[in-house]
């Protein structure tokens, strides 16, 4: 347990180890550690930011969904209204058209009837004239008269 040169030797060894540690051991470990710390901190930051973003996006999506649902309902309602309106209009138009057609047909029928009546009248008169002519021309023959009258009647 004598104090001797070992003391000096140990001091030199100490100095060398401390120098070596300061120069070659401390910096790489320190750098790696602090970079990792920064990376982890950044990662955590990013994660919380992403969570927040996700919440916002979900909120947004929900809002959009709600709005579109409302819009869809509105559109549906409008189209319902519009379709029933259109049906109503079409029905009305059809009815009017029908009435119009009926009126036209009726008036045409009336005209036709009038014309036919007119024609008939003129033909009857003509027939009467022809019949009279025939009756006057032929001898009085009952049989012939009968035949003539029948013929006349058939022609009517």
């Amino acid at each position: 347990m004598n104090i001797n040169m070992t003391l000096i030797g140990q001091m030199i060894a100490f100095a060398i180890f401390v120098w070596f540690c300061t120069k070659y051991v401390w910096p790489p470990i320190s750098t790696a550690l602090h970079e990792r710390q920064k990376k982890i901190a950044d990662g955590l930051d990013a994660a919380s930011r992403a969570t927040r973003d996700l919440e916002v996006a979900q909120e947004e999506a929900n809002k959009t969904l709600r709005e579109s649902k409302e819009q869809a309902a509105e559109i549906l309602e409008q189209s319902h209204k519009r379709s029933s309106q259109m049906i109503e209009e079409a029905r009305e138009q059809a009815r009017q058209e029908g009435e119009r057609m009926i009126t036209t047909a009726k008036s045409e029928i009336d005209q036709e009837v009038n014309r036919a009546r007119e024609e008939l009248r003129s033909q009857v008169s003509h027939l009467a004239v022809v019949g009279a002519e025939r009756i006057l021309e032929s001898s009085i023959d009952e049989k012939k008269h009968r035949e003539l009258v029948d013929k006349l009647a058939n022609e009517l």
Binding site: Q10, A13, Y24, V25, W26, P28, T31, A32, L33, K39
Partner: peptide
């Protein structure tokens, strides 16, 4: 001296090895 230097070198070697390969 021998053992203290051996331990010092063990320390330096171990930490240097890890330090060189240190990954973030």
């Amino acid at each position: 001296m021998g053992w203290s230097i051996a331990m010092g070198i063990l320390f330096i070697w171990l930490f240097r090895k890890v330090g060189k390969a240190a990954t973030t």
